[in-house]
Every structure is written in C-alpha cells, then in structure tokens.
Amino acid sequence: MRAYTEKIREIARRLLEACTVERVLGFRRGSVPMMNAPCFVKTPAEAANLVWDSNCGINLANYLTSRSEKIGIFAKGCDSRNIVTHIIENKIRREQLVIIGVPCHGMIDRHRIAAMADGEIREVVEDENNIIVQGDGFKKVHNRHDVLQANCAVCTHRNPVIYDELVADLVEEPGDVDRYRDVREIEALSAEGKWDFFDDLLHDCIRCYACRNACPLCYCPTCFVDESRPQWVGKSQDPVDVRTFHFLRAYHCAGRCTDCGACERACPVGINMRVFTKKLEKDCLEKFGWEAGLSLEARPPLDAYRPDDPDDFIR
C-alpha cells in the first residue's frame, strides 16, 4: 500500500504541475484510526498529503456530482463503476475527468474490527496480508481477508472498469464468489418472516441519512423524504416511515447500485441496508443480465425497453 501512496502522490503532482487537471480528488490521513478523509488537492505541494491504504472505503464518485472543473480522481473498481453511472446519468462529463485507476485489494470493516478489539483501538497498521490492531494493553493481528468490508468480501470487480492510467498492475478478480447468499436467505423467509426481519434490521435507524448521503446515486436536488409540499413520508421515528425511507431509497438505486458499501460503512448504528440494494442488484442480474457501471455504451435496464423484457409478474 505504501507503493500505492507514493505512486498516487507522484501522479497527482504531475497532473497538477502540467495543469492537466485543476483539482485531484483523493484521500488524506484521518484523525482517528481506520479513517481516511476525502480531500481535494489543488496544488502540486499538497499532493504530499494524499494516502492510500485499506481505509479508503468512501466512494469518491459521490464528490463529482455536477462539478464543473477538470478533475483527477483516484478510482477503485466500485468508484469507477459509479463514475460510469455518473457519466451515463449526465452528472459529470468524461472529458472533465482524468481517472486514475486503483486496482483494489478490498477495504477493511472498521466497525467490525472495533467491535472485535479488547478495548479502544489506538493504532491500526497494515502489511501485505495483515491488519495489525493495537490499543491499551492489547495487540491483534487479523488476516485482511477476514476483516474486509462485507461488500468487498464478495466483490467481483476489484479492477477499475474505466481509467486513463493505473496506479499499479491490475489484480486478479476473484473467481466463484457467491454474491447473494444473504439475499437468498431473506427471499426464503415467509412474508411475515420478512416483515419481522426488516423490523429488527431497521430498529436502530435514527434517520440521519448518512447512508443516502454517502451514496453517489443519491444526488436528487430534493430527496422524497425532504419534500414538504407535498410531504410523502412522515418525519418521525415511526417504524412505517423509517421503513418507507429505506425501501424507496433502495428502489431508486435499482439497476444503478454497484454495491460499493458506502451506505453501510457510513451508518453510525451498524445497519446492513445493503440487503435491500443487493436484492435489486440480483434481480437486475438475473432478469436483465445487467451489472451497473460496466460500460459507457449500454443503457441501464430501467432506462430501456426491449420486447423480450421479463413480464411474468403482469397479468
């Protein structure tokens, strides 16, 4: 990862010095362990602040929406797929971007690592295969594969799908990954079982909207939950309103979600709302052979009509 960081600084400096871009979007070291912060680098000197490690899970495509500058952006597989989606949806133009691809080894799950520690974590460092966690009076070494973010553990697009240059050689894409075991388990529940499962899943939601706001797809000028004239959803903690928010948001992401995990990562109370978007992702794959953000040419399934679209749910 140190090699990535050095290369990233070098590329950012070069792009800014040559005025190829006005700004570079990357990560700087955060103030707490396992937390890097997205940042905009504007001068070649500031490129020295950039870092790359397993704590760059925030999706940087989220910061591109409707920007007008020429931007260099570091993109993991999922980021690059969301950049494609942004371009298709006219949120940014391809010509504005210099995309520096970052072949990804998966990001680590800071919530889970914190929960597994025997006290407060003071420092986390990593080498090729291990994540070394230290705190007052304890030290734990995790194999990085055991502590990946849940979405990274089942990722099949680690390499960027669109880029102008690469930080390193492409990585091998994992073979037979069962991406949808959790979704199938929920599908197998009875209607009542599903209702109870979702009730429990959303019990702790505080409607802070971190999931929505961390998501590059959620760029509506006014989200339906924020509409006040008319008001579509109640704004209290009533469970029906909370559930309405999560379901509707997920449906708005159908055929667009890349399972980047930004929503789950951002959630302050540990809700796995990815089960909603993954169900729709699975449906898109099974019914339309579609995975979001892989091509600038293909139109998304909900954006196109084909006479052979599956319609067996319609009488």
């Binding site: 912060a37 940042c39 910061y63 802070c208 929505r212 109640g234 951002a266």
Partner: peptide, 25 residues
C-alpha cells in the same frame, strides 16, 4: 466542509444538539 456529506450523524449522536422540528400528522 469539503468531505462533509451533510448527514445527521454528528447532530443526532451529540448530547448537546438541541434543535427540533414540529410536525402535524
């Protein structure tokens, strides 16, 4: 503000943020 995603995590987790909104249902 650059990185901020404008979520309510800070305000809702904060013990001293006191602002509220009134709604009729």
């Amino acid at each position: 503000a650059f990185a901020c995603i404008n979520c309510g995590t800070c305000t809702y987790l904060c013990p001293t943020c006191w602002c509220f909104d009134i709604q009729d249902e």
